[in-house]
Simulated scan of single mutants.
Amino acid sequence: MNIKVLGCSGGIGGTGGTTCLQLSDQVLIDAGSGLGELSLSEMKGVRHVLLTHAHMDHICFLPMFLANIIGQQSEPVTVYGSEDTLAMIKKHLFNWEIWPDFTQLPDRINPCLKLQTITDADLLVLDDMLLRPFVVDHAVSTFGYSIRKANRHTVFTADTGYDPRLVIQLDTLGDIDDLILECSFPDHLQELAKTSGHLTPQLASRLVTELATPPGQVWITHLKPSYENELRQVLSATAATRHWKLIAGEP
């Protein structure tokens, strides 16, 4: 896998920060507390943030990140997401109450933040990478991302439940070198996982098994801290017989 995992926990109190993937010096996926692993100088180099969805563990460090770099940029940071995702963060976050509206600061002509709506029909070329968003099954509007970088194909499903349509979508992306797949709850909480749009070890295994072509490697992420030890035991047993790896807690 040729991206850096800054944070991948499913909550606080576990191993590591919440979701933030660094694709390059300029490009991030999500802005969870893992973003805090970057130094101030590294933050100043970020130009693009692709959001999967608007849940707090995936956006919580976005406001403070922008506050760190305001007045330090020659151009705005572009934050990409679905229409629903960007509408939610504009209404509930950058609303002058929870946080200032950085699309208007330092001023409307030269803002710190630019919001760019994308759809699953878009292909993005950023910093020599080809990125394609695709819809996944979660509690709110959510994108996963296909990332083609340096002749390697990585697919990040983000937060998702099991859905046969997702299997079809992943198959249409072509051969996958690295599949980053969430697993939030243990099997005995499968109903909770389904209701909240998450995976269990059994559901994750089912999804991977149903793919037409197996990924080169499966990387498991987004373990809920309260169940992390239990999930690690179960997933480690699976990893011993398949090309699965746990990345929870890896910087």
Results as ranks from 00 to 15, higher is better:
residue 223 L to S: 09
residue 186 P to V: 12
residue 126 L to I: 08
residue 38 L to T: 07
residue 200 T to L: 09
residue 58 H to E: 10
residue 162 Y to C: 00
residue 220 I to L: 15
residue 8 C to I: 05
residue 192 L to K: 14
residue 63 P to T: 03
residue 189 L to Y: 10
residue 206 R to C: 05
residue 207 L to H: 10
residue 117 T to G: 00
residue 107 D to W: 11
residue 32 G to C: 03
residue 83 E to G: 05
residue 115 L to V: 08
residue 169 Q to A: 14
residue 187 D to V: 14
residue 11 G to R: 09
residue 110 N to R: 14
residue 41 S to N: 06
residue 214 P to L: 02
residue 227 Y to I: 10
residue 67 A to R: 15
residue 137 D to S: 14
residue 131 L to N: 11
residue 137 D to K: 14
residue 55 H to P: 00
residue 241 T to M: 10
residue 149 K to T: 03
residue 2 N to C: 04
residue 159 D to E: 07
residue 116 Q to P: 03
residue 171 D to Q: 02
residue 209 T to K: 15
residue 153 H to P: 01
residue 244 W to N: 05
residue 193 A to K: 09
residue 206 R to A: 06
residue 234 V to Q: 11
residue 40 L to M: 12
residue 169 Q to K: 15
residue 111 P to C: 08
residue 135 V to N: 13
residue 249 G to M: 06
residue 102 F to Y: 15
residue 202 Q to L: 10
residue 1 M to N: 11
residue 146 S to T: 07
residue 89 I to M: 01
residue 18 T to L: 01
residue 215 P to H: 03
residue 89 I to F: 01
residue 98 I to Q: 12
residue 40 L to E: 12
residue 98 I to D: 10
residue 55 H to E: 08
residue 5 V to I: 15
residue 198 H to Q: 08
residue 246 L to V: 12
residue 121 A to K: 15
residue 214 P to D: 01
residue 151 N to P: 00
residue 127 D to W: 08
residue 19 T to F: 02
residue 60 C to P: 00
residue 204 A to F: 04
residue 105 L to H: 04
residue 1 M to T: 13
residue 100 P to A: 02
residue 251 P to C: 07
residue 145 Y to H: 14
residue 225 P to W: 06
residue 171 D to W: 02
residue 18 T to D: 00
residue 159 D to C: 06
residue 161 G to A: 09
residue 20 C to F: 03
residue 28 L to G: 05
residue 211 L to G: 01
residue 164 P to R: 07
residue 198 H to S: 11
residue 38 L to Q: 04
residue 106 P to E: 07
residue 31 A to K: 00
residue 153 H to R: 08
residue 139 A to H: 10
residue 24 S to A: 05
residue 218 V to Q: 02
residue 91 K to T: 15
residue 239 A to D: 04
residue 184 S to G: 13
residue 119 T to A: 07
residue 25 D to V: 06
residue 194 K to S: 12
residue 40 L to D: 15
residue 116 Q to F: 10
residue 162 Y to L: 02
residue 16 G to M: 05
residue 239 A to V: 07
residue 28 L to H: 07
residue 103 T to A: 09
residue 26 Q to Y: 07
residue 94 F to T: 08
residue 219 W to C: 06
residue 39 S to L: 09
residue 172 T to H: 10
residue 161 G to N: 07
residue 180 I to W: 15
residue 72 Q to S: 13
residue 52 T to H: 09
residue 188 H to R: 15
residue 166 L to D: 05
residue 31 A to V: 03
residue 26 Q to E: 14
residue 158 A to W: 06
residue 71 G to L: 11
residue 17 G to A: 04
residue 207 L to Y: 10
residue 116 Q to H: 12
residue 83 E to R: 10
residue 192 L to N: 11
residue 180 I to Y: 12
